[in-house]
Design a protein around this nucleic acid. Structure first.
Lengths: 115, 115
DNA sequence: ATGATACTAAAGTTTGCGCTTGACTATTCT
DNA sequence: AGAATAGTCAAGCGCAAACTTTAGTATCAT
């Protein structure tokens, strides 16, 4: 049956994506790899906070990083996205199927224009 | 009380998707619309908790519902997904591009990174 | 009308998230 | 060596999320 909420990678990915700051970081890293300080520059928050965001992204598999000397360089990990896209694509198939069939036979008792 | 036409922003969508219970609900609704009680049945939590999850999904634009008599029937709202997929697809292009170019020439220098 | 059904609303608790500060380590520069 | 730079660690604060329980409102069945 539907198991109780078990910790899953999917959780981590979507949760990571659910924060505007982290999406902005991803966007920046999409263009080129960057150090922690580079990433932090445009944000109006402490370095430590940005580090924490990067850690979340890294745990989720969306980003990976490598420290050389005192500089940690972060980059996108494309495999991370795959998981999210996969989930969405699978469901989308189902939903759209359902909606096409619905369009064909729209004779439900749908009447009151609710919400 | 429902706030109609709540434009699903990206935060809300990904945050909604970041919970295994809610993804399970979406999965169920992907097959066919269902009432609140139907949705709640497989879960080991109170009805009220499930209602709250559904409300989160609704606020995010991923689900919509309609109450007839005493039964609220919930169904997928395909537009909600579109937003998430769109975001992911756009970024994916960037990332993959970036990785291809990276393979080509490994020594782009960076300074003054205007968009 | 009475009672069961299907939610809905509100309040309270616990846990986790996003962020800060302050202290600390490790590297590079002069 | 001493000072600046780049990041790390940990404690703590405020707020929101995820549940719970309790109580209440329609609606449907008998």
């Amino acid at each position: 049956m539907s198991a109780p909420a078990a910790p899953s990678d999917t959780d981590a990915v979507f949760q990571a994506l659910g924060d505007a700051t982290r999406r902005a970081i991803l966007e920046r890293l999409s263009r080129r790899p960057a150090s922690i300080s580079d990433i932090a520059a445009p944000f109006d928050m402490s370095l430590a906070a940005v580090v924490q965001h990067v850690q979340v992204l890294e745990r989720s598999g969306l980003v990976r990083s490598n420290k050389i000397g005192r500089v940690r360089t972060c980059e996108i990990n494309p495999q991370g996205l795959a998981l999210a896209r996969q989930w969405l694509d699978e469901r989308r198939q189902l939903w759209e199927d359902r909606f096409h069939r619905l369009a064909e036979f729209l004779d439900e008792e749908e009447d009151g224009g609710g919400d």
